[in-house]
Amino acid sequence: MNDSKNVHGLERLGSVAGGVMMVGKGLRRGGIFGLIQVAIGGVVLARGITGHSSLKDKLEQGRQEMNTVRTKIERVGAELKNLKTSAEVASEKSTV
Rank of each mutant, 00 (worst) to 15 (best):
S94T: 11
G41W: 00
A90E: 09
G18M: 05
G62N: 09
R47Q: 14
M21N: 11
D3I: 08
E60M: 04
N67W: 07
K5P: 06
L10S: 08
G24A: 10
H52R: 07
T50M: 02
K25W: 14
L13I: 10
S94P: 04
S15F: 00
V96P: 11
L55T: 14
A17T: 14
G51M: 00
N67G: 15
L80A: 11
V43G: 09
L13F: 11
T95I: 09
V38E: 00
I73V: 13
G51L: 00
V16Y: 01
D57A: 03
G26M: 01
G42H: 01
S4E: 10
K84G: 14
L10M: 08
I73Y: 02
K93C: 05
Q64E: 13
A87C: 12
K56Q: 13
G9K: 02
L35G: 08
G26H: 00
S4C: 06
Q37T: 09
V23E: 04
L27E: 09
F33A: 12
V23N: 04
S86A: 15
S4H: 13
K84M: 15
E88K: 09
E74V: 10
I73P: 03
S4A: 13
T85C: 07
L59M: 11
I73G: 07
D3L: 10
A78T: 14
V43E: 12
G34K: 05
I49G: 06
G42C: 02
E65Y: 09
G62F: 04
K93V: 10
S91P: 05
V23H: 07
K5R: 12
R29F: 06
G34M: 02
I73C: 06
S53W: 00
T85V: 14
A78Y: 12
T85G: 03
L13N: 15
S53G: 06
L27Y: 12
I73L: 06
V89P: 07
E92S: 15
V23I: 12
V38D: 00
F33W: 10
G30H: 02
T71V: 01
G77P: 08
E74F: 13
V23S: 03
R63W: 03
E74D: 15
I32F: 12
G42T: 02
I32N: 08
E79N: 09
G31P: 04
V44F: 01
H52F: 04
M66L: 15
M22A: 13
N67D: 15
N67S: 13
V89Q: 13
S4P: 03
L83V: 10
L83C: 10
G24E: 08
I49P: 08
N82C: 08
G34Q: 01
G34I: 01
R28H: 10
G34C: 03
K84E: 15
V38Y: 01
S54I: 02
R63V: 04
L10V: 09
N2F: 11
K5N: 07
L80H: 08
N2T: 12
S94A: 15
L83R: 13
G62W: 04
I40W: 03
E79Y: 06
M22Q: 05
L13M: 14
V44E: 00
L10F: 11
I49S: 05
L10W: 05
T71D: 09
V76E: 14
V16T: 10
A46V: 03
Q61W: 08
K81S: 12
E92D: 15
E88N: 06
L35E: 05
G31L: 06
L10A: 15
G14D: 04
V76K: 13
G77R: 08
A17S: 12
A39Q: 03
V69N: 10
V96S: 15
